[in-house]
């Protein structure tokens, strides 16, 4: 990987992601009850995203094993997450259902909480097309 294409630092990505979500019209319009936390595991980096009433209130970067609790986990290889970070993702890198059915993504933990918040989570993950890959 060259310096030119290198992803930003993990903290810079976390800040950009929180900003994008908290200023997104769709999430702000429909996120009144969007409250949950999830682990975004990109193998080489990981984050715990904490959302309260539609606002990202914290993104923990590379948390230790017992540092931060979360409801569910979205895990995939760095290569898969990099596909999500393209402005127009290639087929099967275009969403968590697609990558779970056809690539190496896994949805673990309290999947019910994911389903309860699916509309806003789907939008949040699509923000990677603008923010860039988390790894």
């Amino acid at each position: 990987m060259t310096a030119a294409t290198r992803a930003p630092s993990a903290q810079a990505w976390a800040d950009a992601f929180a900003e994008a979500s908290n200023t997104d019209p769709e999430i702000q319009a429909h996120g009144k009850y969007f409250t949950c936390s999830y682990l975004l595991d990109a193998t080489e980096r990981s984050y715990v995203v904490e959302v309260q009433s539609g606002r990202v209130v914290n993104v923990a970067v590379d948390p230790g094993p017992l540092d931060v609790a979360y409801d569910f986990a979205i895990r995939a290889s760095a290569e898969t997450w990099r596909g999500f970070g393209e402005p127009v993702p290639a087929p099967m890198y275009h969403g968590i259902w697609a990558a779970t059915f056809q690539r190496d993504m896994r949805l673990e933990g309290k999947v019910l909480v994911l389903m309860q918040n699916l509309r806003c989570i789907t939008r949040q993950i699509e923000l990677l097309r603008v923010v860039g890959a988390p790894v």
Partner: peptide, 25 residues
Amino acid sequence: DWWQHPHANAAQVCASGVWDLMAPQ
């Protein structure tokens, strides 16, 4: 079972559950 799970919003689970079946283009 997720399509009709009473603890989730079935309308949104169905609608957002099939969202990824569409192309970004």
